[in-house]
Write a protein that binds this DNA or RNA. Structure first.
Lengths: 362, 362
DNA sequence: TTGTAAGCGTTATCAC
DNA sequence: GTGATAACGCTTACAA
């Protein structure tokens, strides 16, 4: 209702009885000014409650001092933590964060990038469905906009802050194999829209193959099943042979345990479960979750630091992947004796309602 | 390195062989233009890969089409979800979100507000340590900037999207009392910097008093203890009488169970635990968490909708609190028979290392 | 139908 | 030391 007009530097100058250039110099300490004028300007600014318009500055300076960040969702704590890391790395740099999220939608990704570009961000930090295929992203890069990726495994000309998903997943397979598991499964949400999930599956499968184990069963969930252990349970009734399951993230790993419980299977006696990400809460569970511990916070920090370097015109090189750790937990154990080495045929039903399940061929 | 110059509407106009006003009209469909010129302008824009500068527009139009959002932290899923809700409510409105976080620091809160104002956001959605005391916030409001609060219980002239913390907490006390618990405790992180925690404690205590129960023991944790069940366990060794514990959020509720386990206490036989917030994961635990279920997502949506209405100049009225629900879980049960009605003296040690513990007087 | 020009808030340049 | 003034990218009178 009472939107009072904005106080601009003009108002300050008028009140101080000087030119706007002088006011600007005083307020920015960017040039000479007599003590007297300086005092007048400062008290005028104070009295008026003046503060600079970042927009005016940006327009004139060519830099908005804003960097854009696109993540699939903030509801996923992994991304939320990464963004938090970005914020931290940026704090003190003078840059502000403009955040967008796409809800794992490739189209929305492109729109978001376009919007960020329109806002004249000075650089972007991005996790999206398919950066290598995004017209908006390559367009932005073509215009000279610094781009820093997060979570993605290395892609052609981009720099990325990442963890080596392939190798980390191999580690899980190694653990399973060492304990004597033969029949495994990989559980994923949005397999097709996440290069991370795909790389994890690839690594997992590669190591299984290297050890002469059958290919892991690939189970791709829809959004629905992930939140409904009952639905999940339905589908697992079929996986009789499977004694070890690798979930592509910790939430799935926790949800699948609930599902197992519903079907009377106990973890880890009947089914070993390992997750991915290493979210804090996994540690606090009655059955602490075995998982690959990653550092999303550090990923955010690194992505931001890389971007800051690009903004300073430094040459930017792809850094090595951030470390991961296998976190031992209570959800991983040897398979029951009787279920070992029982390799007769795949207990694989032709179809499972409302689930897209596919077993990759070796 | 190769920061190609930006394509402005001037470039488009030049290439199309027309004035910039015409180009603007065509591209915005905001005025007449002959079919011929229209075509020329459009193909020129296309060829050049032109896109508008939101900044130029904002500067001229007086509105940045950006709204600012300040939350304590994105690492807390409750706030992350709320922000997600804000994003959703804003999508399609043409407004972008500029996000800041303060890490629960009152000073950072003020800085963040100031920065958002400098960015010329058209409105702000805020959760901060002390909105009623923030100079920056009242200043912003004084300048006519629409302000919409989230999570905070109603404060003088502000509108807020909230849940009735006091009443929700009373509900917890009621449940405890009905089951026969007499000695309770309230566990909080950052009690002093969160009006929500304070209101929850107040409601909890009020209902205990109304039922003739002793005041709940107030336990305020530092950041450290919350992540270290060992440390937590140390402090609980003292709370011999307490049979029921209300944690001011679900993470604490989960952490405290781990601590209880470490000391050989079993939940809920020896200790009932109820959380607050209703995070999804609580449902999936082996011992599903009893908690007050709130709707942070809806809170974000409502805060955003309210702000949009303010931006449209509509009168905005404080809406009633969003609903909460008591979610039954396996962490709440009757106290053991022998521990009931044993009211002899407070089992309260003079000091517990590294914890600020205080018992409020009735 | 079209183009010129003023103005949004700032800073940088350049005379004074 | 100081103050006009041009420029940044855009929209919108207003004039042609």
């Amino acid at each position: 209702m009472d939107a009072r007009q904005k106080i601009t530097i003009k108002d300050v100058a008028r009140r101080a009885g000087c030119g706007i250039a002088t006011a600007s110099r005083v307020l920015n300490r960017s040039g000479p000014a007599s003590a007297e004028v300086r005092a007048r300007v400062e008290s005028a600014a104070d009295a008026l409650g003046f503060s600079f318009s970042a927009m005016g500055r940006a327009l004139q300076g060519g830099r908005s001092m804003t960097i854009g960040c696109l993540v699939p969702s903030l509801a996923n704590p992994v991304f939320a933590e990464a963004v938090q890391g970005v914020q931290e790395a940026l704090s003190g740099s003078g840059y502000q964060l403009l955040i967008a999220s796409s809800n794992y939608d490739g189209e929305a990704d492109n729109d978001a990038i376009a919007t960020l570009v329109a806002k004249e961000v000075d650089g972007v930090i991005v996790t999206m469905v398919a950066p290598e295929k995004s017209a908006a992203l390559s367009d932005a890069r073509g215009r000279g906009l610094p781009v820093s990726l997060m979570f993605h495994d290395p892609i052609d000309g981009f720099v990325t802050a990442h963890v080596d998903n392939f190798t980390a997943a191999r580690e899980v397979a190694r653990r399973f194999a060492d304990l004597g598991h033969r029949h495994t499964a990989f559980l994923s949400l949005r397999f097709s829209s996440s290069d991370r999930s795909r790389n994890r599956y690839a690594g997992f499968r590669a190591e299984c193959a290297a050890r002469g184990l059958p290919d892991p069963v690939l189970i791709e969930l829809g959004e629905l099943e992930a939140d409904r252990p009952e639905l999940l349970a339905d589908s697992f009734a079929s996986l009789k042979d499977v004694t070890a399951l690798f979930a592509s993230n910790d939430f799935l790993a926790i949800a699948v345990q609930k599902a197992a419980r519903l079907m009377g299977k106990s973890v880890p006696q009947d089914l070993s479960v390992v997750g991915f990400d290493g979210i804090e809460i996994g540690r606090l569970l009655e059955l602490p979750l075995a998982t690959i511990e990653t550092a999303p916070h550090a990923m955010g920090r690194q992505a931001a630091q890389t971007l800051l370097e690009m903004l300073q015109g430094k040459a930017c090189v792809q850094r090595p992947p951030l470390p991961f750790d296998f976190r031992a937990g209570a959800t991983l154990a040897r398979p029951r004796a009787e279920s070992r080495d029982d390799d007769q045929g795949t207990a694989w039903p032709p179809s499972v309602p409302s689930l897209k399940i596919a077993q990759k061929q070796g």
